[in-house]
Amino acid sequence: MNIKILSRSASLFSTDALVQAAVKRKHNVQVIDPLSCDIVIEKKKPEIYYKGKKLDHVDAVIPRIGSSITFYGTAVVRQFEMMSVFTTVESQALVNSRDKLRSLQILSKAGLGLPKTVFTNYSKDVSEVISHVGGAPLIIKLLEGTQGLGVVLAETKTAAESVLEAFNGLQARVIVQEYIKEAKGADIRVLVVDGQVVGAMKRQGKEGEFRSNLHRGGSAKIIELSDEEENAAIKAAKSLKLGVAGVDMLQSERGPLILEVNSSPGLEGIQTATGRDIAKSIIRFIERSV
């Protein structure tokens, strides 16, 4: 098959792992930068040109669209869909997953456990917002934040009020979530491919850090999921219609709570922690689907 990987750089671990997995399974694979694609829209004749060359006979694409290029990257994925090319992550699913508020609303409607979350239109009554999630400590997240950036733990009501007032003054959109104390600075990342769990790891934040992101010095180890956790991860990916998803959840006294669902999950951390070839699972997903 002829597979295109939409990525800004061929040297990124996840992109390179996908290339190697595709080559091992005898596919033609090319990494293309979505920002270097030109979209040609014409009646019943959608086309994509990459660096001046028309892209023909493409069987499948694997979007590795970073949050900073969501708008144009999604437009490229949508154009491939118009050309009847299979994509591991559909354009609309990508858009929904990138909108933290929208994705939480979809997950809530699906009946999944979530930390209690509040979103307001720059409410001046920050005290009421704090009370809605059960008071401090609480988590404040920028809607556009990634890899733990723009996430604040406010340990007291005074601190929470100060941070919310500051964000409101900057007109920065934030959500406020309850703090799950029993999680103890750890979360679970589950990789779901084509409705099946293909890997899971538990990430622990470094000492004194409530964020468990590996980019921020956290550690990871393989974990065996409970049936409830596995079912929650699969249902979360399905509700957002993601063929490939990284589902982040917390272990709580009331069961697994979904934090967010990532449509372009990094593969390095989970492949290292689990020893599993996640990239191969994604290529096999394409083989089953095309």
Rank of each mutant, 00 (worst) to 15 (best):
S212R: 10
L164F: 02
T117V: 11
K109H: 14
K221I: 12
T117F: 07
A186C: 14
A186V: 00
A160S: 09
V192Q: 09
T120Y: 08
R173L: 15
G150S: 00
V129S: 11
F210Y: 05
K206M: 11
H215T: 11
V129M: 13
G148C: 04
A200Y: 11
A136M: 06
K184G: 00
G217W: 02
A136H: 05
K181H: 15
S127Y: 11
T156Y: 10
V152G: 02
S131A: 15
A154Q: 06
E128M: 11
H215K: 12
R189L: 11
V190C: 11
R173I: 04
N168E: 10
Q147V: 03
G145P: 01
V163I: 15
I180V: 15
G145R: 02
V198L: 07
I130V: 12
A136L: 11
V198N: 03
A160L: 02
L107F: 01
H215V: 07
Q105T: 09
V151S: 03
R211Q: 06
G169T: 02
H215C: 08
A200K: 04
A166P: 10
Y179Q: 00
K157A: 12
Q177V: 02
L164S: 01
S212W: 04
K202R: 15
G195K: 07
E155V: 10
E165I: 11
L107D: 07
V133N: 06
G169V: 07
E207V: 12
V192F: 09
A136Y: 08
A136I: 03
G111M: 00
L191A: 04
A186E: 13
Y122N: 05
A110F: 08
H215F: 12
T158N: 13
I106Q: 06
T117A: 03
E165V: 03
A172N: 10
V193P: 05
A220Y: 07
L149G: 00
S162P: 00
K116T: 13
G134N: 06
L164Q: 01
E155N: 12
V152D: 02
K221L: 09
G111N: 08
V133Q: 07
N168P: 03
L170M: 15
V129G: 08
R173S: 15
R189A: 07
H215Y: 14
A159V: 14
E207Q: 13
G135N: 09
G217T: 08
V190Q: 05
E144K: 12
G111F: 07
Q105S: 12
G111L: 08
D125G: 04
V192N: 07
R173V: 05
V174P: 01
E182G: 01
Y122G: 07
A186R: 15
K157L: 06
S108G: 14
L153F: 01
M201D: 09
I139P: 00
L107P: 01
Q105P: 07
Q171L: 14
K206Y: 06
D125L: 05
Q147E: 12
S131E: 15
S162V: 11
A166F: 13
S108K: 14
L142N: 13
G205M: 03
L138H: 08
I140M: 01
S108T: 10
V176M: 02
S219A: 13
L143S: 05
M201S: 05
G205N: 02
K141P: 05
E161W: 04
N213E: 06
H215E: 06
